[in-house]
Amino acid sequence: MKALIGLAGVAIAVLTAGGIKAALPRAPTGPDPSEGKATQVRVTAVVDGDTLRVEDLGGRELGRVRLLGIDAPEVAHPPAPEECYADQATDLLVELAPVGSTVQLVTDSDQPDRDRYDRLLRYVDHAGVDVAHELLARGAVRRYEAAQDLAREESYSAAAADAQDADSGLRGTC
């Protein structure tokens, strides 16, 4: 009983001296507050290494989704030929977010809803995997330098740096 009273006295002293916040255990931080609404959708097509076509789970077409934070090599747009590693990046996106699969689209409140081509700008998660992060980690895409202040910026930058250091994917091929 004396030990319990002693602990209570210490807790009161800590609460008085350092404020309530300092005495309470830290709560898990959870997702970044700038990550917004998450919506489940179905992948209907993979356009290239950073763009999907999706529909809602009721089958209504939602259009194209550009994965936030990454830039894939361009597929052929005649008369321009495809860029080096475009096919591999597209194939990897097919592997990570297969046509017919259900993925989660997550908004970033610090980013626009759509780009200049009217594509939705979203993080894409499939089966617990951040698809853009995995594309970066495997060296299939580059960081989209114009996209700063992303909720997932730190993770994306680290994945891109690791891929570059390892000379993996397009960095070792192109």
Rank of each mutant, 00 (worst) to 15 (best):
M1N: 04
K2E: 08
L7F: 10
V10R: 00
A13H: 07
L15M: 09
T16M: 01
A22F: 05
D32I: 15
G36P: 07
K37R: 11
A38R: 03
T39C: 03
Q40A: 15
V41A: 11
V43R: 04
V43A: 06
V47Y: 09
G49W: 00
G49F: 04
V54Q: 02
E55T: 10
G58P: 02
R60K: 15
R64F: 13
R66Q: 15
L67H: 03
L68A: 09
D71T: 00
A72C: 10
P73R: 00
V75D: 04
A76V: 07
A80R: 15
D87T: 09
V94A: 08
E95W: 10
A97W: 05
A97Y: 02
V99M: 03
V99T: 12
G100V: 06
T107E: 05
Q111Y: 08
Q111M: 13
D115G: 01
R116T: 15
D125H: 10
H126E: 06
V129M: 15
D130W: 01
V131E: 06
E134C: 06
R138M: 09
A140D: 03
R142F: 13
Y144Q: 07
A147M: 08
A151C: 03
A151F: 06
A158D: 13
A160I: 01
A160Y: 07
A160M: 05
T173S: 06
